[in-house]
Amino acid sequence: MTVPAPRARRRTSTLGRMLPLLLIAALLAPVGLLLTQSWQHTGENRDQASRARLGVEYLRALAPITEALVEAQSAAVSGRPVPGEPLTRAVEQAATLDARIGVELRSQERWAGLRAKLEALRDRRPADPESAYTAYGEVTDLLLDLHDKVRESSGLVRDPGADSYFLQDSVGQELPEAMVGAGRLADLGTLVSRRPAAERTRGLIELTSVRVSALAPANGVVDNLRSAVDSSESTDLGANVLTPLDAYQRSVEALAAYSTPAAGTGAVDPGQLAAAALNSRNAARQLQPVVLAELDALLVERLDGLDRDRWITVGAAAVAVLLLGWLATLLIAAARRAHRRAATPTTDVDSSGDLATGDPWQPPGGTGRPADQRTLQPVGATQHTEIAQWGPFDASR
């Protein structure tokens, strides 16, 4: 019979060999995209929180300048010697800080203008109280502008947390404005009491305007801090803030009462108004560092949470890489086994059960059986054949 030739398996195509790698890439692409976006988002939030902490540090350096400047203005308007050491020391500390972080907060230009005004005011003191009130008012306006610049460039004004937003608004805008406004209100009350009677009516109108500008931010401080306590999940915020806040609120109420013109005379007592303004400034001095500390603590807590999120992202990336590596190993091993099986030739089996490749033990005669192989016979057939062959020989004996 005809022996068929060996038939090899079909070789795996290039697409089949590339299929495991394509599958790994299809799984790796979306996982890598999600992890990359999570890492970038966490990094942006972390950079924002770190920059906000720089803003808190700058606001902490501006607080002594605000306090010293208000005290110097009151002394100049009242005719007392102006204490120059506290303001000089506060300016030097703020200048050192601005040299370190002013570039990042983009505050160097504003600080340079404020410092120049402060030095000019220290070298050439105003000759009379009215001029001192005007000159110090210009410098305090620059100081408040610097507060706003720091809040804007540091991102505090866009803080995403409700409690931290109310805290930064209170300590970065409302409280400095309230301190400056209280000092101006007391100093203007002193000036109005010294003016001629013909000018007192105009002075009272001016005093009423300054009173509004002083009490509005002071009440804003109280409202913002209570909103921060109500919206915060921190248990320490309320315990630390509410006590100095209550003292400050009482001082603001006293300032409002003593700055109201009397019903009969239409005038205010400058002594009582100055004492109420001083009390309000002292209460603000106690409240300000507490609010700054709580704001910084919230930002530190946020940074810690973002760091934990980053570690979770790194862990998820490591697990994804291990799982995809394991899957790639399995797929590549399976592809190699399939490639080896495809490279091994296979043989067919004919209908009689013999291998199509031929038996090397068969003779070349083409019978398909060895020469000494006997034909299969029924049981007992061999014995009768032998008797028939040897029968004549036995008979002759």
Rank of each mutant, 00 (worst) to 15 (best):
R10Q: 11
Q286I: 00
T243P: 15
V252T: 10
L237M: 15
R211N: 01
F166A: 15
T140A: 10
H384T: 09
R195D: 13
G366N: 00
A343N: 15
A256D: 09
G155L: 09
V180G: 10
R106C: 02
T265L: 07
V212Y: 00
A388D: 08
P126D: 11
G55S: 05
S50D: 14
W39A: 15
S154Q: 04
T344M: 13
T190C: 01
L273T: 05
E301M: 05
T313R: 02
R7A: 12
S38K: 10
Q108W: 00
D98M: 09
A75C: 11
G181S: 06
D163I: 04
L118S: 08
V139R: 00
V268G: 06
G305Y: 00
V212H: 02
L33E: 07
D296I: 00
L87V: 10
L225E: 11
Q40D: 10
Q362H: 08
T201F: 10
V229I: 15
A283K: 03
K149F: 00
D145N: 11
A76T: 08
A120W: 00
P217H: 03
V319K: 00
V300E: 12
E104L: 14
R125I: 04
A316D: 05
T66M: 03
G271M: 05
A276H: 02
A197D: 14
T36S: 14
T235E: 13
A76D: 08
W39N: 14
A381P: 00
S227Y: 04
L105N: 06
P129G: 07
L278M: 11
L322D: 02
A343H: 12
T243D: 13
S164N: 06
S170R: 05
Q383L: 13
V222I: 14
R281K: 06
L143M: 06
A381Q: 09
A186N: 05
R195T: 11
V210E: 14
W111V: 01
R9V: 02
G264D: 09
L376W: 07
L54D: 11
P261F: 02
A5D: 08
S74T: 12
D148T: 09
L215E: 02
L143Y: 04
T243M: 08
D187N: 12
S251Y: 01
I332F: 12
R308I: 12
V291P: 04
N240M: 13
Q73D: 08
G172R: 05
L237Y: 03
Y58N: 01
W39Q: 14
L87S: 06
L331D: 05
H384K: 11
S131M: 07
A247R: 11
A275T: 06
D145H: 10
R184A: 14
A297D: 04
L298K: 01
T88N: 11
V180C: 07
T265P: 02
G113K: 04
V56W: 04
A68H: 03
V31F: 04
W111T: 03
G16M: 01
E177T: 10
R337F: 10
L146D: 09
R336P: 03
A63I: 00
E386F: 09
L327D: 01
L97N: 07
L185M: 09
D246S: 15
D169W: 06
G315P: 01
L34W: 11
T2M: 10
A26W: 07
A116T: 07
A371M: 04
P345Y: 07
L323H: 01
V241L: 13
G79A: 05
P196C: 07
A276W: 03
L114R: 02
G102S: 07
R10D: 12
